[in-house]
Design a protein around this nucleic acid. Structure first.
Length: 318
DNA sequence: CATACGTGGTT
DNA sequence: TAACCAAGTAT
């Protein structure tokens, strides 16, 4: 009567090593789901440039896409190429970053644009190694740009991929706190084996990269997963095991109130508003402790996010 | 390898 | 309301 055993428990969960047949079935389902459920984001358009893809990936680091999209459109309008951004003042990039968070990303994007002008003829480099060498581009972003912009089937591992694989293959509620070697191996095994030699496998690998991320973003979410809408619910080791609770080490939340992060953010918010140098007295209210405000101002200067001028004045870097 | 680094929406 | 979390990177 049973023509197809519960895939997760039978085919994938033992030792965390998925068998190729189970992985292929998983990929087919997820890729099919993506074809009908994936969002039409602007950087997924066929005619989006590699620069647009890179911009979207950096903006999306630790940041919800709903907040990324309007800023991405604004940047693409102002700076449609790496050379156009490189020609602007770095402070303008920081200002246009708005409230996306982690404003160092804006600075690194500007640095990366400069590198592209000086070393890559103003183009986004098309090899994983060259991408990885760009400021602000780490393992995830390099793989994502390679796959999405240049159709190079690198293994893309982000928080969504980790969570989907932890659940479907390993039967766990959430992945480890930090990316482990075992997870990287698993992500590699989840890719089509012939992706480097067969064009169809390469295409499948590139779709899988974006599809599994989309599944993690829309269905297999961290809190309140929508398993009823999941295309692989019957193959999922976690779901078929009754969705056991997370049992790993506690996850450290990020402190915020009263931290340097908050004060730095407030200082930068004030400088973004002003298009003229600001006196230090206007920054004092960025936090309750003057010593802390001074320390944060110094660290912002050290990071290159703030430029000190004479007479205790400051501005975004020119 | 642990920690710092923004911001705002959701639970 | 406090906590959690989001297409991570650099040190």
């Amino acid at each position: 009567m049973v023509s197809e055993p519960a895939g997760g428990a039978q085919g994938a969960a033992h030792g965390g090593v998925p068998d190729p047949v189970t992985m292929e079935r998983l990929r087919r389902r997820v890729n099919g789901w993506y074809a009908q459920a994936g969002r039409a984001l602007p950087w997924r358009e066929q005619d989006c440039s590699p620069w647009g893809v890179l911009l979207s990936e950096v903006m999306a680091q630790q940041t919800p896409l709903s907040r990324v999209e309007p800023v991405w459109r604004d940047w693409m309008e102002h700076w449609p190429t790496p050379s156009s951004l490189a020609a602007a003042a770095p402070g303008e990039a920081v200002r246009a970053w708005g409230r996306l968070g982690y404003p160092r990303r804006a600075l690194r994007l500007h640095e990366a644009a400069t590198v592209m002008v000086e070393r890559h003829r103003g183009e986004v480099p098309n090899t994983p190694a060259e991408l990885l060498a760009l400021p602000g581009v780490g393992a995830y972003t390099a793989a994502a740009v390679a796959s999405f912009a240049f159709r190079i089937p690198e293994v893309v591992v982000d928080t969504n991929v980790r969570r989907v694989l932890a659940r479907t293959v390993e039967g766990k509620a959430l992945p480890h706190v930090t990316l482990t070697r075992a997870e990287s191996d698993l992500a590699l095994r989840a890719m089509p084996a012939q992706r480097h030699t067969a064009p169809s496998a390469r295409a499948e690998a590139n779709v899988w990269n974006v599809a599994v991320m989309e599944l993690g973003a829309l269905v297999c979410v961290a809190r309140g997963p929508r398993c009823a809408d999941c295309p692989v619910a019957d193959l999922c080791a976690w779901n078929t095991a009754g969705r056991p609770a997370y049992d790993g080490p506690p996850r450290r939340g990020q402190a915020w109130h009263g931290t340097d992060r908050q004060v730095r953010g407030e200082i930068l918010r004030r400088l973004r508003e002003q298009h003229r140098p600001v006196h230090r007295s206007h920054l004092d209210g960025a936090g309750p402790d003057p010593v802390q405000v001074l320390r944060c101002l110094d660290s912002l200067v050290a990071d290159g996010l703030v430029e000190p001028l004479s007479h205790n004045r400051f501005r975004l870097p020119a």
